[in-house]
Design a protein around this nucleic acid. Structure first.
Lengths: 342, 342
DNA sequence: GTGAAAGCGCTAACAA
DNA sequence: TTGTTAGCGCTTTCAC
């Protein structure tokens, strides 16, 4: 809302007794304008404090130079990393980034996405809300041929670029690592199985057991929503078994930490008595004591990649969609390094 | 970049053999349009999958319905909390939010701010970059009467709404707490003093020393940009003094942590030999061992408040600026609880 | 209650 | 190399 209305190219034109189109061209470094004229124009523009009105330019060009990003919650390390990476790439490529959070609510997500459409974003990067069950608000982007990229949580039935992490390999690697460290009874604290990510992590766990000829024991798998408190109650339940585990693969770092603290307070040594591995590499995992072994998910890279893909979709007509599975990385820290104590 | 060009109000108008202005009015619920016409129009709009082009509307209205937010780094807990709070309030009030990160670089900040100005944001919420030394790019907002709100790191010489935490009280409280715990030589690892926040924290530190009749020793204050590495080198420098400190008030939690790890590796006990307090209450501070005493800053609330203030500036002509000082809270944890060891 | 016309600030085809 | 003109999609004054 500009009060003392801003100078426009017409003001500059009038000042110099030339046409607005010449000014426009000069300011955009059009080669058809002579150097002298350009310099004159730029000097006057500077003097008048001229700033181009991108709104007008965007309307004219039918391009907003804006990329929309929708995440469940901005204030979560993984998502803010993704945003940070995407913003970085987008800004360097001359795009603005508008961000909204769905709070994992389907209604707010629909609302946001429609608003972004009205704002004519050039493309949309989204990780869908947990609650979202219908996808018409997203299908419309495909139908209208507006670039769309999913990350982390994708919609299987919508064909477009997707970037996910390899949860299966992550789960497998964690389990294999624990076996390699000499742990025999490995429990798994799993997340709700309707989310692909948690489902795949568990599948990796099961696969690793099978490959190592370890009999699967159902009582060693506990499924919940992986809050800090649930980590504690799950461990209590596991330790109450007649044959308790000697290692726990926790579905996330939060439960790994709460489990670890609970066990430590009970006088159980980590990793000597029980090995612990988490998932996601939260910032705290590295700095707690003992430090928590975990799986790193490359959030920043994911954001960079998502931005690259959407910009590719925006700037080329190519429509060969890919699903990029970013590798997970096992970070071995103290909480599972039993070998170093032997 | 719309391919199959979107339906406009003219398309709707043609369909119904009425004028575009009537359609516009109907869609905006203008009372001068009869209910019947409105319903007819809305029905057709729906059927055609019409979505208003906010770009055009914004250009015409000279209002972008967008609030810009600039933070040093999105991927930092405090800042992402602020963004989350601001986004929440802004979205509910019908505003979009565009976000950029300066990476604490003055050049990028200037670049971003100019770009936001070009995009005609209705208002700007910003925490300035550490490196920023000149403020012309921000003064222009005031000059042009575009709403501007500072949070966390404000520019004293620019008069506008500001939301800060009570850094002075925070610094004072930390220092007094250390004194109460029996520490005698308290060092301060300070941030660059052109930033009010760090300046005030140091002022609080100095004031507490004075009030307790403790002689200020200049060699105990080190000023840098508070990165993890600088935390280490600062501590090295402090411990190399002929009369090293027995407590360190670190300007943020990051340096508190790196300092702590460095000291621990040198065999120095925390808090028995040296007490440590940080600032900002990063998520990791609670879970590291020993846990780090710190000052909590209400990030989410700050964001909400900032959004409220900017919307108030946007929607009213009132220009009575306020500086809101949000209270800080001292959180005492293990790293400074020496008394419990005596 | 509805329409005609002008214009927000910019760009680009066409002309000169 | 520069100017003329039209128009992006919307809102709004003025007329009826």
């Amino acid at each position: 809302m500009i009060k003392n209305s801003e100078p426009t190219i017409h003001d500059i034109a009038r000042e110099l007794n030339i046409s607005a189109s010449t000014v426009s061209r000069a300011l955009n470094d059009n080669p058809r304008i002579s150097l002298k004229t350009k310099e004159k124009i730029k000097a006057v523009a500077d003097a008048m404090g001229y700033r181009p009105n991108t709104l007008a330019s965007n309307l004219r060009n039918k391009k907003s130079n804006t990329i929309g990003i929708v995440v469940p919650l901005i204030n979560r390390h993984f998502f803010s990393s993704v945003i940070s990476g995407a913003e970085d790439v987008a800004f360097k490529a001359g795009y603005n980034v508008v961000i909204s959070q769905s709070n994992d609510l389907a209604d707010k997500e629909i609302n946001i996405v429609q608003s972004m459409f009205s704002n004519r974003v050039d493309g949309l990067i989204i990780s869908i809300a947990m609650q979202t069950k219908t996808f018409d608000h997203l299908k419309i982007f495909r139908k209208k041929n507006i670039p769309l990229v999913f990350f982390d949580r994708a919609v299987p039935e919508i064909e477009t670029d997707k970037i996910v992490v390899d949860d299966f390999a992550g789960g497998f690697r964690v389990t294999q690592h624990l076996i390699d460290q000499g742990y025999k009874r490995i429990a798994h604290l799993a997340g709700t199985q309707n989310l692909m990510a948690y489902f795949d992590r568990k599948k990796g766990y099961l696969d690793a057991l099978r490959k190592n000829n370890i009999q699967f024991d159902e009582s060693l798998v506990i499924i919940n929503t992986l809050t800090s408190d649930e980590g504690v109650s799950a461990v209590q339940q596991l330790m109450a078994l007649k044959n308790p585990p000697d290692a726990i693969f926790c579905g996330n770092d939060t439960t790994a930490l709460s489990a670890m603290i609970f066990l430590r307070d009970k006088g159980i040594r980590i990793p000597q008595d029980i090995g612990i591995v988490g998932f996601s590499n939260e910032p705290f995992s590295k700095v707690v004591s003992p430090s928590i072994s975990t799986i790193a998910q490359p959030g920043f890279q994911m954001g960079q990649k998502a931005a690259e893909l959407i910009i590719r979709q925006i700037e080329t007509k190519e429509r060969t969609y890919q699903t990029i599975v970013l590798p997970t990385e096992l970070i071995v820290r103290e909480s599972s390094s039993r070998r170093s104590f032997q």
